[in-house]
């Protein structure tokens, strides 16, 4: 600990303690100035730049043409497949993650299952991107272990319409980080359900299902919905996994945008901005919906 006899003279040297001068209001804000400047320069302004660009013509005037141009079939198809993959992987991820979380917290399983699942989920939720694509190619690609094994027992996945380079292939791959992310976030919420609530409900005559319907589901709902939105945004913005998995055979929005940034394949810089704006719009809309829903229905939350 600090030696008082040493720090005493140093304090005496400065006639006013440093804190006293910082009390006045304008200097207060200096403490957060670096963060605010950073956030403006490298998060908010670049985003605004694109949003504004989406509504500008090549000569800088206001226009809605870029947004209207999004309606061309390749771009619409890209948005559609992106939304499908994101919704499917976040919906499945959310429900499967919830089921696993309930199983390990409330299923009466031995303690090691809980810690094992949580540790693994922590890792898998961050295991995305290019290596994840490699893992699924090695598993479910044409020469993947599972594909080969299933073929050797007479079931050919690829003859039954499966392809890892497809909507379902991508969804299945995304689930590898979506499910664990749900588990990691929802387990604390399930831990927050007090045992006494269930007992109180039972003494009041409620069946297990009534208790779930009237208490458990409403209590978990905000965390569940919030995590679902997070999973959606997570999948919607992801590019590395899809790019490494499918190359450009599955044109999701981020891959279209990636190609546009690299080589202006759309031959219209402002249309690129419009695509970026569309992505922000969709993830933003999901969040606005979430906030609206939460404030409307969860008045009991502090």
């Amino acid at each position: 600990m600090t030696d008082i006899s040493l720090s005493g003279p140093s304090a005496a040297g400065k006639t006013i303690p440093p804190g006293a001068r910082a009390m006045r209001l304008p200097t207060q804000w200096l403490g957060v100035a670096p963060f605010i400047i950073f956030a403006l320069m490298f998060l908010i302004l670049p985003t605004l730049y694109l949003i504004i660009g989406a509504f500008q013509s090549a000569d800088g005037g206001f226009t809605l043409q870029n947004i209207a141009d999004l309606a061309q079939p390749t771009i619409v198809a890209a948005y559609w497949i992106s939304i499908k993959v994101s919704v499917a992987s976040s919906l499945l991820g959310a429900f499967i993650g919830l089921a696993i979380a309930i199983a390990i917290v409330r299923g009466g399983l031995p303690n090691w299952t809980r810690s094992a699942a949580l540790t693994f989920s922590g890792v898998a939720s961050q295991f995305a991107g290019v290596p994840l694509a490699f893992a699924f190619l090695a598993t479910l690609g044409r020469l993947g272990l599972l594909t080969v094994l299933l073929r050797s027992i007479g079931f050919d996945l690829y003859q039954h319409g499966f392809n890892v380079l497809s909507f379902w292939g991508l969804t299945l791959t995304y689930l590898y980080f979506q499910i664990p992310l749900m588990v990691v976030i929802i387990v604390p919420a399930i831990d927050g359900l007090k045992k006494e609530w269930g007992e109180a409900a039972a003494t009041l005559g409620a069946t297990q299902w009534q208790y779930w319907r009237m208490v458990v589901i409403p209590v978990l709902w905000p965390s569940f919905l919030g995590t679902f939105i997070l999973l959606f945004a997570n999948a919607f913005g992801a590019i590395a996994t899809a790019y490494a998995l499918t190359g450009s055979s599955l044109n999701i929005v981020p891959i279209v945008l990636y190609a546009q940034i690299r080589g202006d394949v759309l031959h219209n810089a402002n249309l690129g901005y419009a695509i970026a704006f569309g992505m922000i719009f969709i993830t933003g809309l999901a969040n606005v919906f979430y906030i609206w829903f939460r404030t409307r229905s969860e008045r009991w939350l502090k």
Binding site: L45, G237, M279
Partner: peptide
């Protein structure tokens, strides 16, 4: 978490 990384870096480039 809401604004995709590709959008942010696109903004930087421009």
């Amino acid at each position: 978490l809401v604004i995709p990384a590709i959008v942010i870096v696109f903004g930087y480039i421009r």
